[in-house]
Computed example of a mutant assay.
Amino acid sequence: MASFNSHTTLGAYELGVLASFILFGVTTTQVYIYYTRFPHDSSTVKFLVAFVWACEMAHAICIGATLYSMTVVDFGRPELLLLIPRSLATAVIFSGIVGACVQVFFAYRIYGVSNSLYIPCLSWFLSFCRLLGSIMGCVYGFTTKTIPEYEVEWAWLLNSLWSVAAGNDLLIAGTLVYWLYRRRPEGDQRTVALIDKLVAWTMETGVVTSAAGLLTLICFVTMKSNYIWIAFFVVVARLYSNSLLASLNSRATLRALVHKTDVYIQNEIRTQSGTFALALPQSHAESDTGAIC
């Protein structure tokens, strides 16, 4: 490999793994916060969080094993970097599982807000296609010997996989924003504040995950001679898990916002009437928050 460039191969992958490990630490912290703050959540959501974290742990082990193989086991033999490590191929399926689970969760939120199954069913179908594509990508990673061969032979699969994932993210984010805005005129001051916050968070998470997928696709199409696209790929799964945990943990912030808004309304009514104050029970505020979230 006379043209071997360690910066765009080993260096790119190593930076991607380091960033992925940092985000995995953030995910683990958020999981701890979730189980501490919301012990009364349904067993289904608790299982989803545990399952996603377990898949993230397996994904981290796989990409870490790949890095060790590239930098230690195959040290001084750059020609071996062309081979597809089995651990890297295995990481593909864990990344697909995490992304599909998170998209299914947010698609179910669409159903909760809209009471319509059309968009959720479409999103669930796209999530299934993504999971199926990840399984195929893993299998073909075991049967294909080198990364250049994989990039040529299965480019259509990777292009489809990332395009479907990014499109589903945008579909979910756009639909949630649409239905939340439709409910905005129906609410009082407290509900409007909650919806505005949810809209901002939905747009942020949807844009981040879809942009990461599109960036991976662009790097794969334009820079197949290096591993920059692989570096982005090992980070994408962390963005999905962190968006899920951030969404669940944000309920504490939303409830605090409800309380703050209630206090503001009470003060406004006291100022205007001098005698009457509106008091809402805490349970009512929490139920509103849970319904919107």
Score class of each variant (00 low, 15 high):
262 D>S: 15
217 L>I: 09
52 V>H: 02
147 I>D: 00
249 N>W: 12
239 L>V: 06
269 I>T: 15
287 S>N: 13
104 V>T: 09
47 F>P: 00
293 C>D: 07
133 G>Q: 03
11 G>D: 05
130 R>L: 11
32 Y>P: 09
259 H>P: 11
37 R>D: 13
80 L>E: 04
43 S>D: 12
15 L>Y: 01
142 F>Q: 06
230 I>L: 12
24 F>W: 05
188 D>P: 03
179 W>L: 05
27 T>E: 06
201 W>H: 10
206 G>D: 01
192 V>G: 05
258 V>P: 01
90 T>Y: 04
291 A>L: 08
290 G>C: 14
33 I>P: 02
122 L>C: 11
282 Q>M: 06
37 R>Q: 10
188 D>T: 09
134 S>C: 03
283 S>Y: 06
19 A>C: 03
7 H>T: 07
40 H>V: 06
263 V>M: 09
36 T>A: 03
194 L>A: 11
172 I>M: 01
219 C>P: 03
43 S>T: 07
104 V>L: 10
254 L>M: 10
199 V>W: 03
280 L>M: 13
107 A>S: 12
73 V>Y: 06
61 I>C: 13
222 T>F: 05
236 V>Y: 01
46 K>H: 15
79 E>V: 07
39 P>S: 11
90 T>F: 02
194 L>T: 00
131 L>I: 07
258 V>Q: 14
30 Q>T: 09
102 V>R: 04
280 L>F: 14
179 W>I: 11
187 G>K: 12
28 T>G: 11
158 L>Y: 15
78 P>N: 00
55 C>W: 08
169 D>S: 00
160 S>M: 07
243 S>T: 08
59 H>M: 01
105 F>L: 10
252 A>E: 14
79 E>C: 04
183 R>K: 14
136 M>S: 10
206 G>M: 04
76 G>P: 02
110 I>G: 06
169 D>W: 00
119 I>P: 00
208 V>Y: 12
282 Q>W: 14
186 E>K: 15
139 V>R: 04
224 K>N: 06
1 M>D: 07
64 G>P: 03
288 D>P: 00
38 F>H: 12
277 A>K: 04
132 L>I: 08
246 A>K: 05
65 A>P: 00
4 F>D: 01
157 L>S: 12
283 S>D: 03
225 S>A: 14
272 Q>W: 08
257 L>W: 09
122 L>R: 02
282 Q>S: 09
114 S>H: 07
134 S>A: 12
255 R>M: 15
34 Y>H: 06
253 T>S: 08
148 P>K: 01
232 F>K: 02
261 T>I: 10
287 S>M: 15
65 A>I: 06
71 T>W: 04
222 T>L: 14
252 A>L: 12
182 R>S: 13
9 T>C: 01
143 T>G: 13
38 F>N: 09
272 Q>Y: 10
237 A>I: 15
188 D>A: 08
41 D>G: 09
50 A>G: 15
34 Y>D: 01
56 E>S: 14
55 C>S: 15
145 K>A: 05
255 R>G: 14
127 S>L: 08
